[in-house]
Design a protein around this nucleic acid. Sequence first.
DNA 1: ATGGAAATATTGTTGAACAATCAGGCTTCT
DNA 2: AGAAGCCTGATTGTTCAACAATATTTCCAT
Lengths: 247, 247
Amino acid sequence: MTQDGSEPAEALSATDRVVDVLRGRILEGTLSPGAALRETSVATELDVSRNTLREALRLLTSEGLVTQAPNKGASVKAFTASEVRDIYRTRRVLEVQAATESAVADESRFTAMETAVAAKERAEQARLWREAGTASLRFHQALIAVLGSCRLNEFFRTLLAQLRLAWAESCDEERFQRGWAARDRELFELLRQGLRAQSVGVLLLYLEDSERQVLDGLRRARAAPHQARTETGAHGVAPLEHTPRGE
Amino acid sequence: MTQDGSEPAEALSATDRVVDVLRGRILEGTLSPGAALRETSVATELDVSRNTLREALRLLTSEGLVTQAPNKGASVKAFTASEVRDIYRTRRVLEVQAATESAVADESRFTAMETAVAAKERAEQARLWREAGTASLRFHQALIAVLGSCRLNEFFRTLLAQLRLAWAESCDEERFQRGWAARDRELFELLRQGLRAQSVGVLLLYLEDSERQVLDGLRRARAAPHQARTETGAHGVAPLEHTPRGE
DNA sequence: ATGGAAATATTGTTGAACAATCAGGCTTCT
DNA sequence: AGAAGCCTGATTGTTCAACAATATTTCCAT
């Protein structure tokens, strides 16, 4: 509503709007991991009915950004170490495949990646850490795009959103993002040159280091609760593992 | 409610129950592709409120089994050819990787696959075509499991559910399933022997043939509408492409 | 303090309501 | 007859108020 009135194209439903707003707040850090999402308060704040809000929460839960425990309500997802590992395992599968396939990819794919990498470098220079994180994710998203599948793109998008959230908990952005622009650049250049084996090797190291960093940060954050959480403490609270039907 | 009362363990919410029931009906074919899901009628039939039903529909939409057009309501998803291709593209990425990795997989993974393949053979023998289809999907699900990622498993599950639905539209089960047990078996044996290159080769052919068959069936079904659809015809009705933000 | 009971808050679910939009039939005009 | 428009009934999008069931907090008596 108060967004940009330029394009009247999209007439989002109330639910969709709420999903967007909440997703935005979660990813941008306004809503910290573990924070409770009380139905009435959020609903009145966003000026929608409790029913609509509930739909939105359900959707966000299915995106993996929110957890819902029966009769106890919803809260911003706080990832466990094992979940973070799962996310990286998934990334490895997809990105390695993408790196391999990128050797025969269209040139336009590379310009998309290049754009993201350049953005990341600028952001790091300017010390806009959150921005830097986003750019990095965009680079990897562009990498996945070479696989040419909508479904995969969409899936990867939700995956990275989860990772973004995990980052949010694990540490302060600066220490977290500093120095990664160079590694993104390195990886990108190898990909562009079509050096499969090398690309994959570098990629695996990249992911391994990144994973370790997140896990360390998470461990540290859990050990010494950074700062008072908005509501529900994110401390010893076992974040209610969602039923893992598979695996 | 009238299910099996053996395990009182799971206390599903109303929404979850509705999702399960509808998903079941869609995959089992009771609800054909293109069929309209009128809110009031479905809600009263399942004995829940319209609000609850709406939550369920939203969820099913996010699973890709239902489409919702603004102000026009929900209907069982009818896949386009290009979507089917997208599904297979995704399968290729994941299954090829899984086949590769299966060479170093735990023995227990193979027993899971073996079970599914055997079930498929029995089903084909007994001419239980739908059962056969399910077994085949279970085999491929088990293959993906070697990648060891919950998220990937879950994603693949929804992917195969979509494919199941696409099959439903594309043809009668018999012609569709006959003969595939042998190919599943062939693939499985190669995997078990750890012959990477050969496995991948056979797998790619398998997927290519399967894709072609589905696309042919779909074309045929569209050309000569099999039988009167429950409600909304699934004929020339452009099934309202869901916004493809990515790709 | 400590266990437990009463009070309060929150969730799960429903039913009814109403404006906005859609689908089909009917009228009317050319 | 055929096209343009209008009316009407269905259906969706969204809200509100209610109530039972389940947490959480408060408070009291021991």
